[in-house]
Simulated assay, not measured.
Amino acid sequence: MPATFNLSPLIRITLLSLYLSLTLPIPFLAAVTQAPVPPNLLWAGLGLGGLFLYGALSEKVYLDETGITVTYPTWFRWLTRKGWSLPWEKIDQLKMRTTGQGGLVYYFVTPERDRAYLLPMRVAGFGKMVGLIESQTNLDTRDVRPLSQPWMYMILLGFTLLLLLVDGWAIATALTWA
């Protein structure tokens, strides 16, 4: 200890690629269809959206002798998400909750029970991180699993790459019509 855990590269690449595949053709199609929104404005909006997504996917988890800290890049903290920090001695329990899609997430609960802190579940080295948390808090983490398995993101990445191929065709077609 200390240890740093970043968001899994597979998750980051998949979600950034999905954003690109869903948005890249829009300015080209707007130019061809003479949409009321100018393509340059769309490019600016898509770039800004991509920047915010990149910031959100730059989450870091720090573990040290004093506690756990979840943080984001400085420029992103200033604009949106601040992150959080929790000393080990304030962690009373780990509560499981189901998501709307049927997955399981875990929250750190403090003795005051005034606030719950979401356990970061999409980091690379999740098992190691959970082991370090267990060693510092003595919480039973045997049943704690990542929210989604790598194969789910690999399938999504595969379909995203197929979508990017279709995007290439759509953009090439739009450029020939322009």
Results as ranks from 00 to 15, higher is better:
S21Y: 02
A35I: 05
Q34P: 00
V32I: 14
Y54E: 07
P9M: 06
T33Y: 12
V32A: 13
A30Y: 07
T23V: 13
V37I: 15
L29Y: 04
P25A: 10
G50N: 10
G49A: 13
R12N: 05
N40A: 14
L24K: 02
L24Q: 04
S21D: 01
P38E: 14
A35F: 13
R12F: 05
A44V: 13
P25I: 08
L15T: 00
P25T: 08
L46R: 00
S21G: 11
V37D: 10
T14K: 05
L10Q: 09
L24G: 00
W43V: 07
L51K: 11
A30T: 07
L10D: 04
F28P: 00
L20Y: 00
N40W: 14
G50I: 10
Y19T: 04
L46K: 00
L48P: 01
P25Q: 07
L42C: 08
S17E: 02
S8W: 04
V32M: 08
S8K: 06
P9N: 06
S8N: 14
G47A: 15
P25H: 06
T33V: 12
T14S: 13
L42I: 15
L16E: 04
G45T: 10
I26S: 01
L42G: 02
T33D: 09
F28G: 02
L22G: 00
L46F: 03
Y19L: 09
A35L: 10
A30F: 10
V32S: 07
I11N: 01
T33A: 13
G49N: 09
A44W: 08
S8L: 09
S17R: 03
P38K: 14
G45C: 14
L16I: 15
G49E: 12
L48D: 02
N40V: 14
G49T: 10
I13M: 14
G49S: 13
A30N: 04
V32F: 09
W43K: 01
G47N: 09
L10H: 07
L10F: 09
Y19G: 02
F28W: 14
L41R: 05
L22Y: 01
A44D: 02
G47L: 13
F28Q: 05
Y54V: 12
L18W: 09
P27R: 08
S17C: 13
A44G: 09
F52W: 15
L22W: 01
Q34I: 03
L18I: 12
L18M: 14
T33C: 07
R12D: 02
P39A: 15
A35C: 05
W43M: 06
I26H: 00
R12L: 03
L22D: 00
